[in-house]
Design a protein around this nucleic acid. Structure first.
Lengths: 203, 203
DNA sequence: GTCTATATGATGATAGAC
DNA sequence: GTCTATCATCATATAGAC
């Protein structure tokens, strides 16, 4: 038996991961099956042994991207807590055209998901929610009180808006724009934590 | 002479406006020339009497969209100043799938412009800058001091992120999400204006 | 200037050999 | 399961009549 089940599953995963990365970078329309399969070291004819079509692949890739998002990975939490959250945010904002990382699906999908069926939007929603939830937990661990979830949502909106815009403006201004955005986001979070501390000091 | 110069210019404008609206709604790839020309009451063959190709049209449409953005229009400023800025923001955020308005180019372009040539990104940049500048002026008129431009940029980032995400999540949650975002943005602006007032009171 | 008709090219998808 | 054709479709763009 030349092709084992394990082999097939591995191939499928290779296609899926390649696709997720490409979709996240270029969006649904700009990525062709040929392109994906070439990057996965196959010809496009082999594709249909693994997926029923491009739409089907898109759906699966989106879910993978959502769960593989670096927000989902638990970073080593040994370090200083404050460093931890800032490292996360910095990493999110340090997107660059040439970094090997695939960007968060939240940006590229903006145009994509908006005009796709409810199923795709649900996947987008899940991705967004998981980010907000994860950030909420981190913020709470840092001692932030009040409407922490609202702060988390506000932060994610800022992150998405920032990266989305940064991707679309001219190169020379990107760096400074990202810096300004980063310091605004940090300030806001610091403020929330500081306020908490002041309140608890008073008690 | 059956076709006057004026007539040609009018036709060109009709194509341009139709294209701008469609591009802003669906993005570059999802709009076909046939679609545009049909909406402009012509067949696609007539297109090339006015533009050299789709890319050329895209560029022109983007500039038009940037200048026609409702931020560029001066609303009647007779009303209460506070009402004025809030009305603008509310209008931006009140985007709905069925409203006749074409959405701001800042959202749809996110995926588009990111992978296009510098020329397109320059147009995007111009659109973004004009929004920030306009908002800066309005905020200053309202008496906000400090780094007003930074506040304006922060606000635009939030607006773009908000609308972009709202377009991509599931219908039932859109309304509440937009409401929460709106109240956060209003709060931030109110705070900036309030702070200014407190400072000036102290002097 | 606008039309119909057609050329050209790209891409999603299928058929059949290995 | 993967390959090499090949098909079918659709979109950009062109040609030529009116």
């Amino acid at each position: 038996m030349p092709y084992t089940l394990k082999h097939k599953e591995q191939t499928r995963q290779r296609i899926l991961q390649t696709a997720a990365k490409l979709f996240c970078t270029y969006g649904f329309d700009r990525v062709t099956l040929d392109q994906i399969m070439k990057k996965a070291n196959m010809t496009h004819g082999a594709f249909y042994a693994h997926f029923s079509g491009k739409s089907s692949l898109y759906e699966a890739a989106l879910q993978l991207a959502a769960s593989h998002s670096f927000w989902a990975r638990r970073e080593k939490q040994s370090e200083n807590k404050e460093t931890h959250i800032k490292a996360l945010l910095t990493r999110y904002l340090s997107w660059t055209r040439n970094s090997g990382d695939s960007p968060s699906p939240l940006e590229f999908l903006v145009t994509d998901a908006a005009h796709k069926e409810e199923k795709v939007r649900k996947a987008y929603q899940a991705c967004f929610d998981s980010l907000v939830d994860r950030l909420t937990i981190i913020l709470k661990k840092q001692g932030s009180t009040g409407d922490v979830k609202d702060l988390a949502e506000e932060t994610v909106v800022s992150l998405v808006g920032t990266v989305a815009i940064a991707r679309s403006i001219t190169q020379p201004l990107q760096r400074d724009f990202l810096k300004r955005a980063q310091s605004r986001i940090f300030n806001r979070i610091n403020l929330a934590i500081q306020d908490t501390k002041i309140v608890s000091d008073k008690c």
